[in-house]
Design a protein around this nucleic acid. Sequence first.
DNA 1: TTTACATTTGACAATTATTGTCAAGTTAAT
DNA 2: ATTAACTTGACAATAATTGTCAAATGTAAA
Lengths: 100, 100
Amino acid sequence: MKKTGEIIREKREKKRLLLRHVSAQLDIDTAILSKIERGERKATREQITKLAEILELDKESLLIQYLSEKILYEIQDEDLGIQALKVAEKTIKYRVTKNK
Amino acid sequence: MKKTGEIIREKREKKRLLLRHVSAQLDIDTAILSKIERGERKATREQITKLAEILELDKESLLIQYLSEKILYEIQDEDLGIQALKVAEKTIKYRVTKNK
DNA sequence: TTTACATTTGACAATTATTGTCAAGTTAAT
DNA sequence: ATTAACTTGACAATAATTGTCAAATGTAAA
């Protein structure tokens, strides 16, 4: 699956927008956007939703992708990662059914 | 499923250890351990492994529980959470099979 | 009940991580 | 060679995390 940064860069280029154009709208330096696109920095949640608007990307898909990367970053290369994910999933599902 | 803090508190009490005993070994104030046990603060990864040793808890299980809570904290109450978890899982599995 | 000790609470200090700017360095297309 | 876009890295600002401390509260035995 494509990384968040790649998705952003590809769409930005397809729209023929420069880093300068988009970063101005995000109110950050081009340097950061450059780093975000290359995966050297994480965006903030707010930046992701703004980017989806600016670049006309599906907001939900982009957020899901973004969140999944945050999760993976959190568990790093723990080999207990998969098990932790499964436990987290169960907990969420439990919460949902119990409506709490 | 039981929360990390609960597991810790229960085992500490079963072993008749005081906050003061355990927190000294962790080299932190009792206040923090108290908060960790009641879920008011997160422990660090290092504290979790030390706690497993001190309290003779299964290190892997405790870490899995701990990591899953970090994950859940990360996605907060995003309703895209479950989907993000699934994407993360796929990515990890992919990485594992591709050995990279 | 008071004394003694364990735990909790909350204000705030220290430390660490994240997010940002800036200026100089590359790259690529004229 | 010039110019504009992008990248890099040092470092500043900000925000989040992790900690201390002291006072408050709970608990139980004398």
